[in-house]
Design a protein around this nucleic acid. Structure first.
Lengths: 337, 337
DNA sequence: ATTATCTACTAAACCTGTTTAGCATTGCCT
DNA sequence: AGGCAATGCTAAACAGGTTTAGTAGATAAT
């Protein structure tokens, strides 16, 4: 195990000061009036021996790490995994690395993760915030760290965020079902105080109210296991025989709902029409295909990174916050038109 | 932005040396004969003011980081995302954090990521190695870093790994198709020199050979876009009308194959039988459900972490390498039995 | 000739911990 | 009384960079 070269080794080999090496490697040669000849010699030598500065030492001194902390709700969820992947790629292109971790919508875990990120001196944060995390995020912002939220936002926290037009999306989807003649449209969602969930609920309620239909809302706990969820949905179908359409508030619920409907032997959209929030290969390939509200995954990732980069590159902390709301697309797949 | 407390601040506040504080916080008080009374006083104060050591400084000095680097092929792939998620949880329980990133099966990107991980002083590596990465990984091992591979291994590199019994899995799946009376069984895979892909191919070939059937193998490039893949599969179906069963070498190919078959209007398993490597909610819920070779995701993650932890906790580098091969399960779903 | 300015660097402090080597005091033994 | 060990703690070096303040020598201005 040969020891890694340090900046001192480089300086000694060239009989110059490590200060000079540091200036040259950080592109401050001109500013510091280092002769072009020496610059060339140092760069040449550094390349030759493959010297790479120790970035821990660098971060320790500068407080910068070129690392972005990404906290998503659950990296094994297709929606978040795809966004995370794209964010990773984009950040990489701008010279940033990503550290990501799943919050599991668990406040304490998220607090610990934020503490860990802070501790590792990450330069910026991208977060899908769980409940009751307002204070921790406000602290980050107060301490000058760029923070971009996505998927949902925190009404009490002033920061940048990227979301979709949830209210209109479910309103529109519900209206679509109503237009197709459905009367007993159920909405299955998580009981959550998160903005995206609240807005999805409101969109549904608004459409139902406008058409003077009676809402049928089921709220399940976020931490319900898949098995319990399946049972719950099965029971729901059993005791709501009159329901002729269901709108699911996210992809996971949609997936479980699909399983339950399949188990119950009902046909889609004959017996029961379905719309799921978040599109999914599953919904596309399912027979017959499931109508879904597709979120613009690439656009979300692009905007998140754009906002974060703007803040990272800003000389002075930007006072104004940017709120980006993207449109979703209702992908109609039921062939019974 | 109030400045973070440093160990010097603590030492000064208590009028003692920072050495003493460091010893106490690292549980070396007894060994260093620090009086119980002082230990109590320091711990009390540290807790009171909420001092947390700067782990960059710590890592710089000790060379340890309590971070594990995880390199998966593609975090947006369900198989890897689920394993990554579980590895994250398990590592967390052992006091380790995870940094992960996608290699995209790109050698150069992987080299850069390994360099970055090294640079950030990660304590151990979990990797799904791309091609031509033998040297970089050997270097890691030579330099004493614990490395565990999974999903595939590198025949020329002596290290721990966790894989599944790929050869038997495809042999068994092919045999199943043969037993059901299929004669023209095609195998669609990536052209890859990675062990898992080679073994899957061999399993298929072995079963075909034993039954004296003619193999029909299509190898596609790993970096083929989804769109191109779909076209390719569609063309394949078009020009291989006699094929009555297809075995796909991984979940992504299976997914695209499913799309192509659907587009071609063929029925499963009536017109054509399918088996995909890797199970998937999609395959379970697809109508009619798709038979699949399910990898034991949790077990893979558990064993990977187990091996890594053993190495991390070992006082001296273990010479012997452990190779764990797990069984897959053929989940039969075609109802035409 | 003296002073000011510019050029091309560099010594030393700094970031925040850990670790090594060592020091003052007390107690014990002979 | 003198030597030795144990006790309880600390100064300084170290990890590997960046940054501040400054210096030696050449040239230009007065």
């Amino acid at each position: 195990m040969k020891k890694r070269l340090s900046i001192v080794d480089i300086a000694n080999s060239l009989n110059i000061s490590k200060t000079t090496v540091s200036f040259i490697l950080n592109g401050r040669a001109q500013e510091k009036r280092i002769s072009d000849e020496l610059v060339k010699r140092v760069l040449q030598y550094v390349k030759e021996v493959g010297y790479k500065p120790n970035s821990l030492a660098k971060s320790l001194r500068t407080g910068k790490s070129n690392i972005i902390g990404l906290l998503v709700q659950d990296i094994s969820n297709h929606f978040f995994a795809t966004i995370a992947r794209r964010i990773e790629d984009l950040a990489y292109q701008s010279g940033y690395k990503i550290i990501y971790s799943s919050t599991d919508n668990d406040t304490q875990k998220t607090q610990e993760l934020i503490a860990m990120f802070r501790d590792r001196h990450v330069d910026g944060y991208i977060i899908t915030p769980p409940d009751n995390i307002e204070e921790d995020i406000s602290d980050l912002i107060k301490d000058g760290f760029p923070v971009v939220l996505f998927d949902r936002y925190l009404p009490k926290v002033a920061t940048d965020y990227v979301v979709v037009d949830n209210l209109f999306s479910t309103f529109n989807a519900t209206q679509y079902l109503i237009d197709k003649g459905h009367k007993n449209i159920a909405f299955i969602t998580y009981s959550s105080i998160q903005t995206q969930m609240i807005e999805r609920l409101e969109g549904y309620e608004k459409a139902m109210r406008q058409s003077k239909l009676k809402p049928n809302i089921t709220e399940v706990d976020f931490h319900t296991s898949d098995q319990a969820l399946l049972k719950l949905m099965t029971d729901f179908l059993e005791s709501n025989k009159d329901v002729d359409a269901i709108l699911f508030a996210n992809n996971h619920l949609g997936k479980c709902g699909l399983k339950a409907i399949r188990k119950a032997g009902k046909s889609i959209p004959g017996d029961i029409a379905l719309i799921a929030f978040d599109d999914y290969e599953l919904f596309e390939l399912y027979t017959p295909a499931v109508t879904a509200i597709a979120q613009p995954i690439d656009e979300i990732a692009d905007n998140v990174i754009k906002l974060l980069m703007e803040r990272l590159n800003a000389a002075t902390p930007e006072e104004k916050n940017q709120h980006i709301t993207l449109a979703t697309e209702l992908i109609i797949r039921d062939s019974s038109n």
